[in-house]
Design a protein around this nucleic acid. Structure first.
Length: 577
RNA sequence: GCCCCGGUAGCUCAGUAGGAUAGAGCGGCUGCCUUCUAAGCAGCGGGUCGGGGGUUCAAAUCCUCCCCGGGGCGCCA
């Protein structure tokens, strides 16, 4: 509809330019849905854009264009000049009415597009190290990444959801040390600190427990889950593991169990990954050495102070970065570069990294290093998101990762349920802070809680269908009603909103911003709920068979779009509530 | 000091390929239950779009300077 209108305006425009003796191409004008419906279905700004070029008054140009548009026929019901030179266009109502049948016919495909043309895109998200339960920040990222992936699927991309599994490096060693410390403590063998602990500079921290000194790693993980794992190991093996290094069985057990928990958490909010990519495999397959060699060949690697450096200044950064520490261990940067190069080797046309704001600084190094290795850096995109705060009773709920007093995804999901969790996490634009209103999220009142409000709008379509069945009225087929019956302003309004869905999906996909879908759904529900509620004015089920059929068609169209939208956010679309 | 992100109604936030009278939810106030779910709906009140300059026919939106908040600037990840 929009495209057709665009063509017609373009044709009128070219005619006008030819007559004016102007050889240039017409300007790129906008054709938007005005805020106020009194301004018509579409509004065009082209006359104002041309004013200077043609040295004529905008309103004059607009008037000429409207005259030329007159021949359009069929599509346009009325076009008028307004304000400083807008051309406001009202479409013939039949255009909107026929949309209802189209939506029903297309079903879940309404809103789908083929921007991706089947190309391969990878969305990497969560990628949390298996050192503890998922925090709310991870939860936000999980929902965000998943919704972005859903949008890409809707836009015709072949999507791979990927979790980069950090199982190499120091962090996992500290995890193992932490478990071992708790293991010794549990067996009453913790004091004094073991020789191994004291010999290791990373394990020299001594913590007082019940007045006794206990060896515990510096920056160790203090959560109860560590003690639980330790206890399970003690129960199973007794004192047999006293001489086992922290980096061995302790680390492996902790990693496995914690990851299983993470997986279960993600499962509980409906998130699945296609690939779990192991950092360790990059080590095992020699990818790190390859990257070093290739970067060295480009003159971007040098040695100094016993470490290996990336000459980042040559790439325009303000300082160089260590990629292999003097200890011989790579920093996170090296495997990251290797990993991202692998993404291209694996054939992805486009790569999207979803990351928290704390990682933002690192991204350019990875991207530009991969670019230096000969890949198109524009094909790597970053979606950055800020963190989550939890508010209850007007107060911030205090969170500390170090003390392991943070609110976990599990706790939140237990309190508010999966659908509300997802909706609240996706409702804000990624780059802004997200304030999770726990009281509102817990509120079962559908009027207040926006997640329920949208779901309830969907459930209402089924409520009407149930009522129809009761009185023996069948739901119509796409060609089984005359949509011309839908003539009330609020009905046209509803259909117009339905018509915006494809454009909304496209925009959300292109800008990687799923919150647009959440807002669209609230708007849609905000039109539909009142329509249903105010049934004195326009009951769907009435004595007028033709009108009833048309309104039931509207019910089906609304349901189709609401369900598609909920699906894009990964929410259920309940039939009754 | 440098880099990134925010600053829009009492609160939480939409709105940036420049468009007309800046929107929503929550909270507040006032109404509506013989109804396809009142777990709902209608209405009212609420604003120097952080501030100053600039570009433009037109700026919340673009440029610039400043203020405030968050994050980051490691041989941590």
């Amino acid at each position: 509809m929009r495209e057709e209108l665009n063509r017609q305006i373009d044709r009128a425009l070219r005619g006008l330019l030819v007559e004016a003796g102007d050889q240039e191409d017409p300007p790129a004008f906008s054709l938007e849905v005005p805020r106020q419906s009194e301004h018509g279905d579409f509004s065009c700004n082209v006359a104002m854009l041309l004013a200077k070029r043609l040295k004529r008054k905008p309103r004059e140009i607009a008037t000429d264009l409207v005259a030329r548009l007159g021949d359009a026929g069929g599509l346009v019901a009325a076009a008028e000049v307004a304000g400083p030179g807008f051309i406001n266009i009202r479409l013939d109502a039949s255009n909107w009415q026929s949309l209802v049948a189209q939506i029903i016919e297309q079903g879940g495909d309404f809103g789908r597009c083929d921007i991706g043309r089947g190309r391969k895109i990878q969305v990497e998200f969560v990628s949390a190290n298996p050192t503890g339960p998922l925090s709310t920040g991870h939860g936000r990222q999980a929902v965000l990444g998943d919704c972005i992936a859903r949008l890409f699927e809707k836009a015709g991309w072949d999507v791979t959801r990927e979790y980069y599994f950090n199982d190499g490096g120091r962090q996992m060693r500290v995890l193992g040390e932490s478990v071992k410390a708790r293991y010794l403590e549990h067996l009453g063998l913790a004091a004094p600190p073991s020789a191994e602990s004291l010999a290791n500079p990373e394990s020299s921290w001594v913590e007082a427990v019940d007045g006794r000194p206990v060896a515990f790693p510096k920056d160790g993980y203090q959560g109860d889950y560590i003690a639980d794992i330790a206890k399970a190991l003690a129960d199973e093996h007794g004192e047999a593991l006293v001489d086992e290094p922290g980096d061995g069985l302790f680390r492996e057990t902790a990693q496995k169990e914690i990851f299983a928990d993470i997986d279960a958490t993600l499962e509980s909010i409906g998130i699945h990954f296609d690939v779990h990519y192991n950092e360790k495999s990059l080590y095992d397959e020699g990818k790190l050495e390859q990257v070093i060699d290739d970067l060295r060949a480009k003159g971007l690697i040098y040695e100094a102070d016993g470490a290996v450096w990336l000459a980042a200044e040559k790439l325009g950064f303000d300082r160089d970065r260590v990629v292999i520490k003097s200890s011989g261990e790579p920093t996170y940067l090296l495997p990251d570069i290797a990993y991202h190069r692998e993404k291209f080797h694996r054939g992805f046309d486009r790569v999207v990294d979803v990351q928290g704001a704390d990682h933002i600084e690192q991204f350019p190094y990875v991207r530009d290093a991969v670019a230096a290795l000969g890949f198109d850096a524009d094909r790597i995109e970053l979606v950055m998101h800020q963190f989550v705060t939890i508010t209850s009773d007007g107060q911030r709920v205090k969170q500390s990762t170090r003390k392991a007093t943070f609110v976990t995804v599990d706790e939140l999901v237990r309190d508010v349920g999966r659908d509300v969790f997802r909706f609240f996490m996706i409702e804000r634009k990624p780059e802004g802070h997200l304030d999770f209103d726990l009281d509102l999220a817990k509120d079962r009142n559908w009027r207040k809680n926006p997640a329920y409000y949208v779901q309830y709008a969907h459930a209402r379509t089924h409520g009407i269908e149930r009522k129809a069945a009761e009185i023996g009225v069948a739901m119509p087929s796409p060609d089984g009603f005359d949509a011309g019956q839908l003539a009330l302003p609020e009905e046209i309004e509803l259909v117009r909103k339905l018509g915006e869905f494809p454009e909304t999906v496209r925009r959300a996909a292109e800008t990687r911003a799923p919150h647009h879908i959440a807002y669209y759904l609230r708007d849609m529900a905000g039109l539909w709920n009142p329509y249903v509620q105010d049934g004195q004015q326009h009951r769907v089920l009435s004595d007028d068979d033709a009108l009833t059929a048309a309104r039931l068609g509207l019910v089906l169209a609304v349901r189709t779009v609401l369900r598609s939208g909920l699906e894009l956010l990964g929410l259920s679309a309940p039939e009754r509530m």
